[in-house]
Design a protein around this nucleic acid. Structure first.
Lengths: 112, 112
DNA sequence: CTAAATAAGTTTATAAAATAAACTAGTTCA
DNA sequence: TGAACTAGTTTATTTTATAAACTTATTTAG
């Protein structure tokens, strides 16, 4: 294994980063959803500090990827959007966490 | 401390993420420089797989932030650009690592 | 010696992504 | 009944990332 291959392997975990989860805005959404059963749109918006438009667009991306599921309900005739993590989303977070752990372990060259 | 404050504190580490380092392209650059004394432009380009323009623009950003220093030398009349991490850059990586460790520890709600 | 090819970058055009403003449809309130 | 408010969606705008085009210099081939 030559030096080039070695270096490529060192940077491989960064190449493998899931950009969908890695973006701070979506990371906040996924992080919050990972510790609650479900959340509604307005509540999630308040917890994350995102604007309505920003949250909506990013929820759509996560839904399209199969990481979250969205359910529309009515409470006293008022529409409510409920968001929850899917099994696939939970798995994606776990993979992201393990991959990033590897990245962090290799930063600065000291292994912990 | 009400629930809102608690949630805001949980997401705080994500809010504190340094976007300069967090972007995968620059994370690769910083990660590589964190384990070598210095690297030259062409070598770094080969190790990271980036194009000349992409690497140049991102090196400029890291230099402007004070995370790296750039030195131009001539080897047999050929220009060479040498890049190395600064003390401030090393500190920024350390802060990023600690902050992201916190993020990872809180994902999925289980503490390790 | 000269023109073409190559090298080491920088600059800028283009593409992609992120974000917030504008918009829509419905409910509540004065 | 019209204004204000709410819960989103859509789209315009801004920001960021990326690669193509460009620049300057050296090397190579004829």
């Amino acid at each position: 294994m030559n030096q080039s291959e070695s270096s490529n392997q060192e940077l491989q975990p960064i190449t493998n980063i899931d950009p969908l989860i890695h973006a701070p805005t979506r990371l906040k959404i996924m992080a919050y959803l990972s510790i609650v059963e479900s959340a509604d749109f307005t509540f999630l918006m308040n917890q994350t500090g995102l604007t309505r438009g920003n949250l909506s667009v990013n929820l759509r991306k996560l839904e399209d990827a199969g990481y979250i599921s969205i359910k529309k309900v009515f409470v006293d005739r008022i529409p409510r959007t409920l968001i929850r993590l899917t099994g696939e989303g939970r798995l994606a977070i776990q993979t992201y966490r393990e991959n990033m752990q590897q990245v962090l372990n290799e930063l600065l060259g000291d292994k912990e």
